[in-house]
Simulated assay, not measured.
Amino acid sequence: MTILQQLERYTEEVFDQAVSWRRYLHQYPELSFHEKRTSAWIEQRLEEMGCSVTRCQHNYGLIVTIKGDLAGPTIALRADMDALPIQDEKSVDYASNVPNVMHACGHDAHTSSLLAIAQFYVQRKHELKGERRLIFQPAEELAPGGAASMIAEGALSGVDVIYGVHLWTPLAYGKVATKSGNFMSAVDDFSVEIQGLGGHGGVPHHTIDAIVIGSQIVQSLQTVVSRNIDPISPAVVTIGTFQAGQANNVIAERCLLKGTIRTFDERSREIAQNKVEKTIQKLCELHGATYRYELKKGYPAVVNDQAEANRVLEVARTIVGDENTEEAAPIMIAEDFAFYLKEVPGCFMFVGAGSEAAGAVYAHHHPRFDLDERSMKLAIRMLVEAAEHYANQVQAQ
């Protein structure tokens, strides 16, 4: 039997173990850049399997290299391991034991799926074509993220192609979705602190009203996209926080705004960044206020290679059928998998994890988030079958 012929049976056999791994990780989540216990636990599982593990020096990332006995390409597969600062509100026996920290995005299941893949490959090195590089990455949720530093430490050294999965509850269990080109947006966050001149609400002519200035900034920023960005290039500028004032009869001297910029191409990204800052500068100058502006550049856009996206969709059709394989629409959320795709060809995909029966009906980052754990079986198959499809194609050339 070939590796692929063994895979479907293996995913059924390993499923209970993968669920056990996932539920353990769910009970003991750790925030971005603090995944010390998680990383050590993953490393122990990998060493028990007989894997050779390299620890990253600048974060808690782990790199596993599994070399096959047969010639072939080097293919990377990635999972993320960090959790979010959210209180778990689920009524399940595997709910988080850490106050105000939970796996609310499925990273525990991503890690468990990649552990199952590690076990699959290490047991079959004699029939493996080439090398499989398994990347257990910390800090996906918080910029600057963990991907860039892992790349700097050699995670992609010699890699020909990379694949990644996000288990996705808005997509029903049993479905797979991806697309070539722009898939997920770039993200940049900004904040501005406006300093005006406070005073009595009855004598506004002796003040510089920070709330009025902040309100004008919020309104004016709506034209950054509508009047500056090419309308066929999607972009979003959102103000998510507006903090000012303490009393009804006091004109506020200070206002704090925080927002986010989402774009798909570097030209639109640059325009939006510049126009946001220029709008803030001019309005503050107009009213005689000072300001402090900070731009925090985040992740670039996730841009899937066309050939690899087509490969993933082809593999999905063989596993879940045409009716459950979807060409995804671009989405304005960010992922630091983007950094890998800037270095080597690859594809990031959504595997459906939503299910009413499993209670997986809440959005990602919701305090009652959960997923249909059967989706891990499909994640395992999608990653391995995409990798082996690529390896077989290279061998045939």
Rank of each mutant, 00 (worst) to 15 (best):
D82Q: 05
A316G: 05
D108L: 03
L128C: 06
E193A: 09
S39I: 05
W41C: 12
I3E: 04
E30L: 06
E253Q: 14
E12D: 11
S185T: 15
Y94I: 11
T260S: 14
Y362N: 12
T223H: 04
H166D: 12
P73Q: 12
A235D: 00
N310R: 13
C255L: 03
A210T: 02
V394L: 00
Q273P: 14
A139T: 08
H364Y: 08
A186K: 06
Q393D: 00
V361I: 11
V250C: 10
H389G: 15
A252D: 01
N97M: 12
I271F: 13
Q57I: 04
Q44F: 00
Y60F: 14
E35Y: 04
F136C: 01
S215Q: 07
G174P: 05
T263V: 10
T325N: 11
V361Y: 03
I208C: 08
A338I: 07
K282F: 08
I194F: 10
K179P: 00
E193D: 13
L31P: 15
N59Q: 05
Q273V: 09
G130L: 07
A363Y: 05
L128V: 13
K179N: 06
E356N: 13
I232H: 12
C255R: 02
V351H: 10
A272V: 01
V101H: 03
S52F: 02
L114E: 07
L286P: 11
R227P: 01
Y28K: 06
V19K: 09
T65D: 15
Y10Q: 03
E285H: 13
R317G: 09
A328S: 09
A71N: 15
M150H: 06
L114M: 09
A338F: 02
Q273F: 04
N228M: 02
V351E: 11
S149H: 02
V187T: 14
E8D: 13
M184Y: 14
A387T: 15
D372W: 12
G181W: 11
H103K: 01
V64Q: 12
M102G: 00
G259T: 12
P345K: 01
R254W: 04
G354S: 06
S215D: 02
A79Q: 05
S185Q: 04
A79F: 03
R368E: 09
S215L: 05
Q27I: 03
V92L: 13
A301Y: 08
P144K: 07
E48W: 00
K377V: 10
D372M: 10
Q393V: 13
V187G: 08
E131G: 00
S32V: 03
A272S: 05
A71V: 14
S113I: 01
E294F: 14
T223I: 08
G174A: 04
Q395S: 12
S32A: 11
Q246W: 07
E308R: 14
E141L: 01
E277K: 12
Q123R: 15
P99V: 10
L142K: 11
S233F: 03
V250Q: 13
A358Y: 10
P367A: 13
I261D: 07
V98C: 05
I86C: 08
Q123V: 03
M1P: 04
